[in-house]
Amino acid sequence: MAFAIITRVFAASLALAGLVTAHGGGGSHQKPLQVDPDADWATRHMAEEHHIGNFDPASFFTLHDFDDNGFWDQQEILKFYGMEDETAKDVPQSKKDEITREILKLMDSNENGIVEREEFMAFVVDKKGTLPDFGTGPGHHWDIEMEYEIHHWEKYHDENTKEEDLIHPEDIAHFKLHDDLEDEAERLEQMERQAIVEQNIPAKFRRDT
């Protein structure tokens, strides 16, 4: 178990290592699409999170059917509304409940607690409905590296950025995350090497030194 944790953390730290190289390695970086401020939530979400300006309802549904099983469960709804992202850590459960409740109310015509593809298409195409804006942002649902890429790096940096240029609060926080992951990986690796991990011994079996 401990080794598996170390492996996951260490892999994560390696994936995040070399930030400037990874983001500024000469590849093409898309700039955020300009979106009408009065555009509906789905349009803004697709532009800001996916850099997609033209899409149809079927594409939107498929893109957010994360497990590709033909329907949105309540966890998927919360995910594409950004409720699993770090930025939503202070969103109260009551707000999350409101999101799923309202979406199901709008689309779940057979009242089975999920939004099936046909139900979504009927809502958007037949009823000309749009996904509501709950005031919780554009719906972050990428991993931490991609979120940094599309919401900060592409706006303020490019392939010519040097390490000394990364001074924005978002840059500092991202580098700190790298350091924290590496520190955690090192700590777990050291624990794994110990024959006995003192912290795992119940207090009643420990001898005072």
Score class of each variant (00 low, 15 high):
residue 128 K to E: 10
residue 129 G to T: 05
residue 130 T to M: 09
residue 130 T to H: 15
residue 130 T to I: 11
residue 131 L to C: 07
residue 131 L to F: 11
residue 132 P to W: 03
residue 136 T to A: 11
residue 137 G to C: 05
residue 138 P to K: 03
residue 138 P to H: 10
residue 138 P to G: 03
residue 139 G to C: 05
residue 139 G to E: 01
residue 141 H to F: 10
residue 142 W to E: 04
residue 142 W to N: 02
residue 142 W to D: 06
residue 142 W to Q: 07
residue 145 E to S: 09
residue 146 M to F: 14
residue 147 E to K: 01
residue 149 E to C: 09
residue 149 E to W: 12
residue 152 H to S: 12
residue 152 H to K: 02
residue 152 H to T: 11
residue 154 E to Q: 14
residue 154 E to T: 13
residue 156 Y to E: 13
residue 156 Y to M: 10
residue 157 H to R: 08
residue 158 D to E: 06
residue 160 N to F: 09
residue 160 N to D: 14
residue 162 K to C: 07
residue 162 K to P: 00
residue 163 E to D: 11
residue 163 E to H: 10
residue 166 L to I: 02
residue 166 L to R: 00
residue 167 I to V: 15
residue 168 H to T: 09
residue 168 H to D: 14
residue 168 H to E: 05
residue 169 P to C: 04
residue 171 D to S: 04
residue 174 H to A: 03
residue 174 H to I: 08
residue 175 F to D: 04
residue 176 K to E: 12
residue 178 H to I: 14
residue 178 H to C: 14
residue 182 E to G: 02
residue 183 D to T: 08
residue 186 E to H: 07
residue 187 R to M: 04
residue 188 L to P: 02
residue 190 Q to E: 15
residue 190 Q to A: 15
residue 190 Q to Y: 08
residue 191 M to W: 03
residue 192 E to S: 12
residue 193 R to V: 05
residue 194 Q to P: 01
residue 195 A to T: 15
residue 196 I to F: 12
residue 196 I to M: 06
residue 196 I to T: 05
residue 197 V to G: 05
residue 198 E to P: 02
residue 199 Q to E: 14
